[in-house]
Design a protein around this nucleic acid. Structure first.
Lengths: 299, 299
DNA sequence: GTTTTACTATTCACAATTGAATAGGACGGA
DNA sequence: TCCGTCCTATTCAATTGTGAATAGTAAAAC
């Protein structure tokens, strides 16, 4: 019967996915000798060779690949189990894990969560700032704040707002170099922009201003750094209007420019929707972020 | 993340299914304190109460019941995994587990398997004699010999033969009491039959002979005991024709009686079909049992 | 050609998990 | 009422599993 250690399956999946014992150990949070023993024992118990011990790693054999598909099904089952378990928890205490874009996580959420932690001292918050989309089924996070329309199924998604973008610069920079008169004049200024990501370049070209990455004098792929650079007076850059509105040292430029709008979504998995803890957090975030997005209109 | 011990799930399923820690421990093959700790730790890790500690056992709570369905999915996945693994084994050595009806397991298969073990000394045989239908997905057995048409899906089934049944008695009994002349005369004889199971009674009634369980002077639900009783000269009973044919001390009676016929099937799960070890065993069994079933015709 | 890096395998002290034994509670039958 | 049986909870010695450290290999980087 299937009376072998079910944990061996977890190690099996990890090694199959990463291709090495060491990487698998890092992923699971255990040590390389342990993973190695697990694989050995699984192979011994099944009487099969699951991996080819190649140079620099473990490679699945054919039989191993066949079995992997079953093991993945099992892991997905475990994911669903723990998701359902998390969704069944009662009471307003415990941990809520929030994932958000770097900008939101660094510049917007800390203040909101500071207020929240006063209202709900029993709830601990884990905040992950990343622009990578996360897998809510695998519980990378309980709640995700994303600036893209969610695509994953089985999610409950609420749209918070459409966040307009605008060019802006600090008072110190504008005093030194003046304000641009139109999009073409922008090219005469110290532009702050993205490095490898070319979405901004395409946007400019769509506006009729011929631009390549060297048009930006200060380049970084980290949006938070862009923001800090704008504040520091390095030059002119693109930012979310609500953020600009909040910062008195900044001035919004060329408001007539037809720039794209970022949709802001709050998403969570439907199985955790009914957890009071998570629901409470989500409701608070929704309200606070709506206020934040609307705050620009008032100014 | 789902980084709890996957073995806890196995214990969880076992307790949920059996309703007590002790029974679950017996089922899994571990000790009651261990299972108890597993449940405690699972509840602690999830922050949920899965069981109500009632008197004389553990009872699922509502949330526990919800989670059980996920856990069952997981266990089925593990079953499939180990089934696939068993089916992937190469070489003609290892263990093959055969399940068969009590009669087949006691009276027919031992001789066949004795021949087989000479031909395939590398294969170890486990033989389970039970009239309960087994779950081949959960690998109660690799191969099942059944006297009923298989219903489970995902099985590979081969029909071996239709085995006719007949009344018979030993020479010693017949010398003492004479042979019955027709089905009505049977009631004047010492009939050997089933106790709680009423299939034989219904059969007799269908033949026009009015019969109840007290018409049988010797009753047992164990088919093997019936057979041994017939041989011992206790009376007249029903048996498979090929078995009667093999036993010179027995005489077949009333061959014109329209008795039902038992289909004999060899079944195995499709995922183990390609294991050389299991396939070899199944082929041998099929051939040997076909011979056995046909042996009656020759006599 | 040497260094750096990434990996596996092995050792060994330690920490974790296990199960035999035991105590105690609730039920059902004599 | 008492006894036997079923169950759970707890204790503690022994086993099992773990991970830091280390040695060794092969490839990539300099």
């Amino acid at each position: 019967m299937s009376d072998f250690d079910w944990n061996l399956l977890r190690s099996f999946v990890a090694v199959a996915e990463t291709g090495s014992l060491s990487a698998a150990a890092r992923k699971i949070g255990t040590s390389q000798p342990t993973i190695g023993r697990h694989i050995s024992e699984l192979e011994r118990a099944l009487g099969l060779t699951l991996f080819r011990r190649g140079l620099g790693g473990y490679e699945l054999t054919d039989t191993g690949a066949t079995l992997l598909s079953h093991a993945l099904t099992i892991r997905e089952g475990v994911d669903r189990f723990s998701l359902q378990a998390a969704g069944s928890e009662e009471g307003l205490s415990g941990t809520v894990r929030i994932s958000a874009s770097e900008v939101m996580a660094s510049l917007v959420l800390p203040q909101i969560l500071a207020r929240f932690s006063v209202e709900e001292p029993g709830i601990e918050i884990e905040l992950v700032g990343t622009n990578l989309v996360d897998n809510l089924l695998r519980r990378d996070a309980d709640i995700a704040i994303r600036m893209v329309t969610p695509s994953q199924e089985e999610l409950v998604a609420r749209k918070i707002a459409d966040t307009p973008l605008a060019m802006c610069g600090s008072q110190t920079y504008l005093a030194r170099c003046g304000a641009p008169t139109d999009q073409f004049d922008l090219l005469n200024h110290a532009l702050i922009g993205q490095d490898r990501d070319d979405v901004m370049i395409k946007g400019f070209n769509a506006l009729g201003a011929k631009v390549d990455r060297h048009s930006f004098r200060f380049r970084t792929d980290n949006q938070v750094i862009i923001w800090q650079a704008i504040i520091a007076g390095v030059g002119i850059g693109l930012a979310q209007v609500p953020l600009i509105a909040r910062e008195p040292s900044l001035q919004r430029l060329l408001p007539e420019l037809p720039l794209p709008v970022l949709p802001m979504w709050l998403t969570m998995h439907k199985d955790v929707r009914n957890s009071p803890r998570i629901r409470r957090t989500a409701d608070f975030l929704y309200a606070a972020l709506s206020d934040f997005a609307r705050s620009a209109d008032a100014t």
